[in-house]
Structures are given as structure tokens and as C-alpha cells.
Simulated scan of single mutants.
Amino acid sequence: MTEYRDPAYACAYLAMQDVIPQRDVGERLLLDVGCGDGRLLALAHTRFPGAEGVLLDHSAAMLDAARARTWPAPVDYVAHDLSQPLPPLGTFDAIISGFAIHYLSDLRKRELYTELRGLLNPGGLVLNLEHVASVDAHEHTRFLDLLGGKEDPSNQLAPAWDQVAWLRESGFARADVVWKWLELALIVGWTD
């Protein structure tokens, strides 16, 4: 699905993730569980140190990086490719994803949103800090220039507002883009 299965590629991303422009602004809005190397769960633990979590990623290198962290509460690790239906995971108050869903086809994004909705407790929410399609080619080029000009061939970007509609179609009572900067957006779906 992506180059992140290659340990060298995953490590290169982890080494540069702190310099993605405006990422920190979007992350300050996130409140609960994370994925990848555990970055988002670590942020959540600064506010909710007792929050238990499940870290799900298809990259062994990412999960190894997450295992290397010290966690203040129990954390489970699940190796899983999001292009496939989710395995049984339990239910959650919050599900957070950071820059992972944009590698999926639009059809799979829609299926995944329905699966995520089914995992949420009443009053739950999904927060997706995501790489989304730009409004035009000029803005896409501008965004790429800020990141060093490299296009990721695995990207399957969808407009943020399309994803809001897909969340609503998936059974979320409300959904919105609560923050956006160029091709980065925080998309939230609330169960009620």
C-alpha cells in the first residue's frame, strides 16, 4: 500500500515529522488515542495520562518506534493494513488518525469511516488529521514546495469536504473540518 513498510522509509519519515509546516497547530486540537509511532497518543497523554490506547499501523518500523516509548497507561499494538477491513478491536470513546487514511482509495475511505463509526461508544468521536486534496494545482505545488517538492506516489487525496460528507453518510450525527492549512486538515465526526 505505501512505502512505509520499508523500515528505512518509515525511519526517514519519523526523522522529519516534526518539521511538517503547521502540523503542531492541528495536533494541539487532538484529544485522544493515536497510531503510527504513537505520536498522537503521547500528545493525548499530556492531557489525559490515564487514557488507554490501541496503536494500529501496518508498518513494523512504526510499531517498533511506538513500543520504544514509555506509556503512562496500558497500550496495545495491532499490526494491520487499513486497506483491509478492521479486525475486532473493541469499542472506544475516541479514535484518532494522523496522516494515514489518505493512502486509501476513496471507496475504502468511506468503508473505513463506517467501520470506525461502529467502534465508537455513545458520545464518541473520530479525529482525522489528514493530508487532503488541494483546491487547485497551484496550491498543490505550493504545498509540495514547502515540504521539499517530493510527491508521495502512494497518496490518494480526497477533498476535506467530501470526507465530511462521507462521515455523515457513515452514521456520524455531525462532521466538520475544524482546522485546515493548505493540504492539512483536521476532520472530526461526532456520534451524537
Rank of each mutant, 00 (worst) to 15 (best):
G38K: 15
G148E: 04
M62G: 01
L125Q: 15
Y103Q: 05
A173H: 03
T191R: 10
L104R: 02
E151K: 00
E27Q: 07
R69Q: 05
T91H: 10
I20P: 05
D176V: 04
T70N: 01
R110M: 02
L125A: 15
P122L: 08
I96F: 14
L40Q: 12
G98V: 00
L14E: 12
D32C: 12
R168I: 06
A42I: 10
R142Y: 07
A100L: 13
A10E: 02
Y103K: 05
Y4S: 03
R47S: 13
L56I: 08
A10N: 01
G118L: 12
H45M: 15
E139I: 09
V126Y: 03
A94L: 08
V164M: 02
P87C: 03
W181V: 00
V188W: 11
L55F: 08
D176E: 15
S83G: 12
L167C: 10
T46E: 15
F48Y: 15
H131T: 10
R39V: 01
R28K: 04
F172H: 01
T46G: 11
E169S: 08
P72H: 13
T91S: 08
D57A: 06
A15H: 01
M62W: 06
S59T: 04
P7R: 02
P122A: 13
L184P: 04
E130P: 14
I95P: 06
D81T: 01
P122V: 12
R67G: 01
F48H: 09
K150N: 09
N155I: 01
